[in-house]
């Protein structure tokens, strides 16, 4: 239980690191309860306000947040308990009420004053969310995906039944590009949240293959040549290594197998069979 409470608190801290929509929700809740001039909120809006006012503290307080996490099942992490709070609807509703009151405020008679304030509010919304976009990470993943597409297209020219053993930046996309291609282990080897989908686990050979490739990705050296026999035993047809791995290591592997080295999209590709 303490672990869950600690996890809940860390979740609350984490969700506010890159964006501030939750802070915006709290601000709007306070404003909607306090502000009355110019527009009286309707009964329907009041009910959403009441519901959110009760639920937001429950999502922030670690003890109640842990209970909510238990309710939504352990498959889902802390950020998902905020699904129970209508964040989008609440911010939109609060923002609309704010703009209505501003428009009816006698202290802001001119259109340009109202427009300026509206622009400030929109900028606040952008700053609360827009600066922390996932675009950067997704751009990197998209680039890896495109590179994998080209590698697979090249390999499929001369080979029908492929089984590829590659770093995570390639192996994760292979079966998306072509479901006929097999791999010795899947994305759930490093994206452990996917393990909730199956009862199956990987054997020791698969673990060793992953550790060898992970070591090559992290240290730029591939010296564990014994695992090559394991890979061949598992039916791997092609081995892919990152382009920054020492060429000497790649050369040794190719010489040992009597295979040619191919260079594709910044990776070394060595046929094992």
């Amino acid at each position: 239980m303490w672990e869950m409470i600690r996890h809940a608190w860390e979740g609350w801290v984490g969700i506010n690191l890159s964006g501030k929509y939750m802070a915006l929700v709290i601000l709007l809740l306070v404003y909607l309860w306090i502000g009355k001039v110019g527009y009286t909120i309707r009964e329907e809006q009041k009910r959403i306000l009441l519901y959110a006012t009760v639920l937001v503290p429950l999502c922030i307080c670690p003890l109640t947040a842990a209970l909510l996490m238990g309710y939504q099942t352990r498959f889902y992490d802390y950020p998902w308990i905020w699904s129970m709070v209508p964040v989008t609807a609440l911010i939109a509703m609060g923002g609309t009420v704010l703009l209505i009151r501003m428009r009816r405020d006698e202290r802001l008679p001119r259109v340009w004053q109202q427009g300026l304030l509206a622009a400030v509010l929109v900028a606040l919304l952008w700053l609360s969310g827009g600066l922390g976009s996932q675009e950067q990470q997704l751009s990197r993943e998209k680039a890896d995906y495109r590179a994998t597409q080209l590698i697979v297209a090249e390999l499929q020219r001369d080979n029908n039944a492929l089984c590829i053993w590659a770093p995570t930046t390639v192996q994760g996309y292979v079966r998306i590009i072509d479901p006929q291609i097999q791999v010795p282990y899947g994305r759930n080897m490093w994206d452990t949240s996917l393990n909730a989908y199956f009862y199956d686990t990987y054997d020791e050979d698969s673990m060793m293959l992953y550790e060898a490739m992970d070591c090559a990705q992290n240290t730029a050296h591939f010296t564990d040549v014994e695992v090559l026999d394991l890979a061949i035993g598992k039916g791997v047809t092609h081995m892919v290594l990152p382009g920054y791995v020492a060429y000497e290591d790649v050369w040794n592997i190719s010489q040992g197998l009597g295979a040619e080295i191919m260079q594709l999209q910044g990776y070394y590709v060595i046929p094992l069979q």
Partner: peptide, 18 residues
């Protein structure tokens, strides 16, 4: 106004999982 704000929140609220 509500719909525009919803559109902006959805468009700009891509900063975190969940």
């Amino acid at each position: 106004c509500f719909m525009v704000l919803v559109g902006l929140i959805i468009g700009w609220g891509t900063y975190a999982y969940g």
